[in-house]
Write a protein that binds this DNA or RNA. Structure first.
Lengths: 222, 222
DNA sequence: AAACAATTCAACAGACTCATTGAATAGTTT
DNA sequence: AAACTATTCAATGAGTCTGTTGAATTGTTT
């Protein structure tokens, strides 16, 4: 094998991976699967795709070895093939946020549209938690909280948040987090909390980012 | 702006970046540009593309803000838009190497074809260098060595290596490194050295990986 | 084994992507 | 300003990617 053949093969094989990542729906699926395993139907519902379309994209991701499946009764659950997949996704996300003005602009515009939502990053939140300065809300669906969540976080899925308001203090800062920087549950939660007179902000990163950094979590061993 | 619009915009913007990465030639260009700035013609020569074709791909990369240009006399030099681009490329490389059997197989097959070339990784090499156990050769073109190289490395471009053999000891281990894990200069150098009776191996990573980890380097400040 | 639910397949049309060619542009040197 | 060089543009045809539809498959429960 000569030099050129070798390079063609290597970069060709790698481009098969990046091709699999080169579609907005598939990126959204990966972002979702960072939370844990989901069935095709759940994925379709969470992303607004048809089931057939979601399945097709999942096949593409599976062929590129970015996701793997586990059977569970009638359902097939898809999850990321490994930690490296989230790593690569996080790196691409950073890349988009830092150099691609579009991405950052869309995100900040959206947050302004919801009333100047303030945000902290993971390390700042970690310090605040240590000093016991904040109440931390996990506003993802309960199932995802159950799979794993930040140490000391309270489950408060955004649809049920309204009912839980009476248990919250208006004197303490409340921080909400969800799936990741593109997840809007935390924005919705903070908007509601502020409207009701609480002090609230969101954490920019999501649970997977927190866990990857080795910050304190609680999770069920499965 | 509603939730769905927001997500479509975010993942759409990000997919424009990943689309730019979803082509073997463009990946090869990024891997090359990790060494520093190159003109279109140099890029074309290094990758076996036509100049027009290379230019077209460079436009794509520029639009995705993955590369930027600097004028220099008659030439336009392209370089990576920032450290994050190399980060993302490294993450994708890892992903390919770990989960995509193809990539790893191609690489190991190629090295076997060249006579079982042994390799060390960056941290092992760093330890060996500290103990002064090895001679380190930078076998990239001299220009790239001049831009920056590993502390204590000797420049020995693979085409000129033959002439430098007489200055090398047959008693000490010789380690060669080049641009990165897919660069074959180090393999060629090690094959030659072993044929001539030297003890030699390659470092898996390249100069940019070494520098990114903050290991000791020497470089001209420009 | 039949009924059922979840998932995948097949096929289509429309939109993109690629390499190649030769011509056009922009900037530099004479 | 003319000649020159490096780079980009525009147009083409072959190939690939997408979403949609409805039918087929696979595995589970009755």
């Amino acid at each position: 094998m000569n030099k050129r053949d070798f390079k063609d093969k290597v970069y060709g094989a790698l481009s098969r991976v990046t091709k699999a990542l080169s579609n907005p729906h598939r990126l959204e699926i990966i972002d979702l699967l960072a939370q844990g395993p989901f069935s095709v139907e759940e994925i379709a519902n969470n992303t607004g795709m048809s089931v057939a379309n979601a399945s097709q994209h999942l096949q593409t991701l599976k062929q590129a070895r970015l996701v793997r499946i586990t059977r569970n009764g009638n359902f097939i659950h898809y999850s990321l093939a490994g930690e490296n997949v989230f790593h690569a996704w996080a790196a691409l996300r950073e890349l988009g946020m830092e150099y691609n003005t579009d991405v950052e602009k869309v995100v900040t515009d959206f947050r302004k549209g919801h009333g100047e939502i303030a945000a902290v990053d993971a390390s700042a939140l970690a310090r605040m938690l240590e000093k016991n300065e904040v109440i931390l809300l996990d506003v993802r669906p309960e199932e995802e909280y159950r799979r794993g969540h930040i140490h000391r976080a309270i489950s408060a899925p955004v649809e049920k948040l309204q009912e839980q308001l009476k248990h919250l203090s208006k004197d303490k800062m409340i921080v909400a987090y969800c799936r990741g920087p593109f997840c809007v549950y935390a924005d919705e939660a903070v908007a509601l909390l502020k409207k009701k007179g609480f002090h609230a902000m969101r954490m920019n990163e999501g649970y997977p980012d927190w866990a990857l950094r080795g910050l304190p979590i609680e999770h069920t061993t499965m």
